[in-house]
């Protein structure tokens, strides 16, 4: 991405609360939150080739830990850090056994594990988690917006760094062919585990921000497979294994969802499901690659004789 464009985007994101109304800032927050969710999933799936269908578990743990600590009086920054660490620890617990599984088995294995966690949370914490009156009284959107903005910047920056690092090259080698990667000396298990831990910590941070942002929600909702599915949709839509695809996918996803939800709640799921299938089949590079595809199609058109 061009530096000028990047700077312009950063300035716009920072200035948004000062130039736009509360509703727009809220939309911006939701987009940025999904940027974190998408990037955290993209790191492992886009670069390491590991489709984690249990991503919601990390989001949920981050939300649970951060919210409990914060409501207990811990400063939100410390609570969020603890949430991210807790998610990374869970990543270790889930990753150690499941990363020995290859491809689809990793995908369905992680899905099963996160479902176990969700059901356990739903049973042990069946009550709505609502903020007490004093916290509601002090509730302001602005710090939450900037927190999520910072997380979005950190997660995108992380992916950017990984994409340029030796570590990232190792991940890509594993994605392309795990056996070949092993034979050229990439320790695939460690690479995947490291990527999973970072991915889990970022997702935990997103969950933490979610727990800090919402006035009330059922704890199990933060563990819902919907968070995983959203990540998959946004990343594929925007462009998997790219730095700027997931943010584009997230913006597209949230804004279209908000626009469609005004009419019918289920419509956006239908639209996204269909768009997703089309992207998987016909546009494997995602929206970020759309221009490239158009260029290639034009370029390959046979010249008239």
């Amino acid at each position: 991405m061009r530096p000028a464009l990047l700077v312009a985007l950063a300035v716009l994101a920072c200035a948004l609360p000062w130039v736009a109304g509360e509703a727009v800032v809220n939309w911006g927050l939701l987009v940025l939150l999904q940027v974190v969710v998408a990037q955290s999933w993209n790191l492992l799936a886009g670069y390491g080739g590991q489709v984690n269908l249990g991503h919601a578990a990390f989001f949920g743990i981050g939300a649970l830990v951060t919210r409990s600590l914060w409501m207990g009086g811990v400063p939100v920054a410390a609570a969020l850090a603890a949430g991210a660490v807790a998610a990374a620890v869970a990543g270790l617990g889930i990753g150690l056994p499941s990363l020995r599984l290859r491809g689809p088995y990793f995908a369905i294995g992680t899905l099963a594990m996160s479902e176990i966690l969700r059901i356990v949370v739903a049973t042990t914490l069946p009550e709505v988690s609502a903020l007490p009156a004093d916290l509601i009284a002090g509730y302001r959107l602005l710090p939450r917006y900037y927190l999520v903005l910072a997380l979005a910047a950190v997660s995108t920056g992380t992916v950017w760094l990984v994409a340029r690092s030796r570590f990232g090259m190792g991940l890509v080698a594993i994605r392309e062919d795990e056996w070949v990667a092993e034979t050229v000396g990439v320790d695939s298990y460690r690479h995947k585990l490291a990527a999973l831990l970072v991915s889990a910590a970022l997702a935990g941070g997103a969950g933490g921000a979610f727990g800090y942002y919402h006035l009330s929600f059922y704890p199990q909702f933060a563990f819902s497979p919907v968070w995983t599915f959203d990540a998959v949709l946004m990343v594929f839509l925007g462009g998997i294994g790219t730095v700027w695809g997931p943010p584009i996918g997230a913006a597209f996803f949230v804004l279209l969802r908000e626009a469609l939800a005004l009419r019918l709640t289920e419509l956006h799921v239908l639209v996204f499901g269909a768009v997703f299938v089309v992207v998987v089949l016909a546009l494997p590079g995602g929206l970020v690659d759309l221009l490239g595809v158009l260029r290639r199609v034009r370029g390959s058109r046979p010249q008239p004789a």
Partner: peptide, 24 residues
């Protein structure tokens, strides 16, 4: 390997479409 992976993704998108359509 990519066949299994992509079939999971397509199935996933299809599941969303069928689920949402059924609700509608």
């Amino acid at each position: 390997e990519s066949k299994i992976q992509l079939s999971i993704l397509i199935g996933f998108g299809l599941a969303l479409v069928l689920h949402a359509s059924a609700i509608l």
